[in-house]
Design a protein around this nucleic acid. Sequence first.
DNA 1: ATAATATAAGTGAGTGCTCACTCACTTGTT
DNA 2: AACAAGTGAGTGAGCACTCACTTATATTAT
Lengths: 214, 214
Amino acid sequence: MAINNVEALFAETLNETDLTGKQKDVLRASLSLFSEKGFSQTSTPDIARLAGVSEGTVYKQFKTKEGILRAILAPVVQNVFPKAADEFATDVLEVSYPSLETFLTSLVENRLNFIVDNQKQLRVLLQEVLFNEGLVQQIRTAFMERVYGPIDSALSHYRDNGEIVNWQTGRMIRYVVSTVVSYGIQIIMMPEFTVDTKASTKEIVEFLMRGLKV
Amino acid sequence: MAINNVEALFAETLNETDLTGKQKDVLRASLSLFSEKGFSQTSTPDIARLAGVSEGTVYKQFKTKEGILRAILAPVVQNVFPKAADEFATDVLEVSYPSLETFLTSLVENRLNFIVDNQKQLRVLLQEVLFNEGLVQQIRTAFMERVYGPIDSALSHYRDNGEIVNWQTGRMIRYVVSTVVSYGIQIIMMPEFTVDTKASTKEIVEFLMRGLKV
DNA sequence: ATAATATAAGTGAGTGCTCACTCACTTGTT
DNA sequence: AACAAGTGAGTGAGCACTCACTTATATTAT
C-alpha cells in the first residue's frame, strides 16, 4: 500500500533551499491553495492568511504571484524528466538489458510513485499546461531530451531482438504513458483514495505486455 | 482527413435555441475566449468586445458569468454520454453483435470524431473538472448510467464467448478510454494540426485488439 | 394601413469590491 | 550600527454586476 508522502517530499525540497521559515510557509500555502482552488482562484491575501504572514511578505522573495507559481513548478519540470532519465541510466539500463517485463515494471512503478509523491504539483501543472504554451514547450523539450532518448534506446533493443512489435517509438511511448496516466489521474483527482501502486503496476504491465510483445 | 467542424456544430446547436442574434453572439464569443484563455482569465468586458455588444447585454440572458459557462457546458455534458449510448444502441448493437474489431473500430472512430467536433468545449470542460466537483460528479453519473451499461453488455458478450481476456469491465474501459484520449489530447491541445481520425482509429484498435483479445 | 401603446432587448456609465502589488516604516538578526 | 526580513495601509486598475434609460419589436386600436 503506497503512502502519500507528497508533504514529506516537498518539505525535503524546501529544506534544500536557503529560504527563511516564513518564505517556506508562503510556498507551502501557495502549493496547497493552487492545488485545491487553482492559480487564478487563489488570491495573494489568501496565501498570506494561510501562511500566517503579511501580504508584503508574499512578495518579498518571489516578486509576483506568477513568480511563486514558477518557484513551485520549476523543480517539478526540471526534475521529473532528468530524474527519470538518471534513474533509468543507473537503475534499469546500466547493466545488461533486463527482460521486457522487468523493464516495464520498473518504469511503470517508478512513474506511479512519482505521481503519488508529486500529486499536488502535478495537479497545478495540469491546469497550467492548458494555457501556458511556454510551459508546454518546456515540458516537451525536457521530455524529448531526457526521457525519449533512453526509452528509445531500450525499445529499439527489444524491437531489434524481435521481442516487441515493429512500431515507431513515439507510438509505443504514447501507449505506455496513457495507460500509466489513466491510473495516475485517479491519484491526482481523488487523493482521498489511496492507490495500490504495486497492484496497479502489475495490471498496467500485463496489458502493455499483451499489447506490445510479439 | 477529418475536418474540424466544431464551428458548424456549435452553430447548429445555437440555431436550435430561441435566443436572439446578439445572445448567440455572446455565447460564441464566450466559448472562444473560455477555450483560448480559460474561464478565469476571460472578463465580461472581453466577451462584450468580441461579441460586439454592450456589457449589460452579456448579463441579460444568463444573469452571471458562471451562467454563461453552464449554458456552454450543459449541452456537452448532457449530450456526450446520452449521444454515445443512443448511437451505440442504434448503430452498433441493435443488430447482432459485430466482430470485436468492428465494435472497437466503430466506438473509437465515433469518439475521436466527437472530440474533433467538440474540442473547444472539451478544452473548457477539461479545466473545469479540475476544480468543479459538482461537474465531475455529473459527468461520472452520466457516464455510469448511459455509457458503462451498453459497453458492459458488449464486453460481457465478447468475454462470455471467450474472445477477450477475463478482466473486469472497468479495467478494460479504462484502457480503451485512455488510449483514445491519448490521441484526443493531441486534438484538443494542438488544434492547428489536423489529426487523421481514420488512421488514428486503425492504430488504436490494433493496439487494443492485441491487448484485449485472447 | 397607420399610429399608439406595451413589451422586450439592448445599452453603458457607474458601483462596490477585490485584486496584485508597493513602499515607508518597524522589527529582527548579524 | 548596519543590514535583512517582515509588515500592513494604501494605490491604481479592473473585475462582476446593476439599473435607469434608450431603442427595437410586437400588439392593439383606429
